[in-house]
């Protein structure tokens, strides 16, 4: 019995030492909570625009302490059913003509100065802001994360269910996330993104939604705040949202090239 206790203590000490040594590895729950999964499926169903073509204009305003605000305007053409989108920079002039084209898992950045397409992975930043390109596209959290319930919380005046997502593999930008889902309609109002070591890196507030089709929503305003670099935040406004059919050629490299001529 004494030997078992000693072994257990030694194992606990070793485990504690391993966990405390330097940088951290993520905790892996290993399974998804059905209640959490249901909540995730529900909001993804509302945000899933598959079957729709969506065109919209985004204005990004990036604020950093001690620096002038940086403004970017982009136009996005989305066809989530085909897992494709085209994003074209329209403002400022120094960025005009640049763009992204995604087709499936391939993401390309087009540089009009050299007229070349640079391959990126899906997690590239839009114009070096806090906004990632995987924001545009079909959500699929349960494919990449384990989901568990993490209690409730109040965000602004809304009561929210909190769902914690833990990455199944470490190839997602934020391996730990907490989604605050509004109880009234199940839409996310706040997302906290953590590193593998569970340090808060970024908080995204979904301030406003717009219904583009029955039961289908797209965010109209969001605010992203950097937790490490205090004072750095990005405000994203989504305007001119239409669901008119988009010509097929707009989902091509040729279209991107054409925009810079």
């Amino acid at each position: 019995m004494v030997r078992v206790v000693r072994f257990s203590m030694a194992a606990a000490l070793l485990l504690g030492a391993a966990l405390g040594l330097g940088a951290q590895s993520p905790a892996k729950p290993g399974k998804t909570d059905p209640a959490a999964a249901e909540l995730v499926r529900a909001f993804e169903a509302k945000l899933d625009l598959a079957g729709l073509d969506v065109t919209n204009d985004f204005t990004l305003v990036q604020k950093k302490e001690g620096e002038a605000d940086r403004v970017l305007r982009v136009r996005v053409y989305r066809r989530d059913a085909a897992e494709t989108f085209t994003l074209v920079f329209q403002y400022p002039d120094s960025e005009r003509g640049k763009g992204y084209w995604r087709s499936g898992a391939d993401l390309y950045l087009y540089l009009p100065s050299t007229r070349e397409f640079v391959y990126r992975n899906r997690k590239d930043d839009v114009g070096s802001t806090d906004i990632r390109t995987d924001l545009f596209g079909r959500p699929d959290a349960l494919g990449q994360f384990w989901a568990t319930m993490a209690g409730t919380a109040k965000v602004a005046s809304w009561e929210c269910d909190v769902v914690r997502l833990d990455a199944k593999k470490l190839d997602v930008s934020y391996p730990v996330q907490k989604w605050y889902l509004r109880r009234g309609d199940g839409l996310p109002v706040k997302v906290e993104n953590f590193s593998a070591g569970e340090t808060l890196l970024r908080t995204v507030y979904y301030v406003e939604y717009k219904e583009v089709a029955k039961g289908k929503f797209i965010f109209a305003k969001l605010l992203s705040t950097d937790a490490l670099e205090k004072g750095r935040r990005t405000l994203l406004s989504n305007e001119g949202i239409t669901t008119a059919r988009i010509a097929d050629y707009k989902f091509s490299k040729a279209f991107l090239e054409e925009q810079s001529r």
């Binding site: 470490l170 593998a196 070591g197 340090t199 890196l201 490490l228």
Partner: peptide, 11 residues
């Protein structure tokens, strides 16, 4: 804070 070799941020 860095973007690790696998893509995930770690701190």
């Amino acid at each position: 804070s860095l973007r690790s070799r696998f893509g995930a941020f770690n701190t």
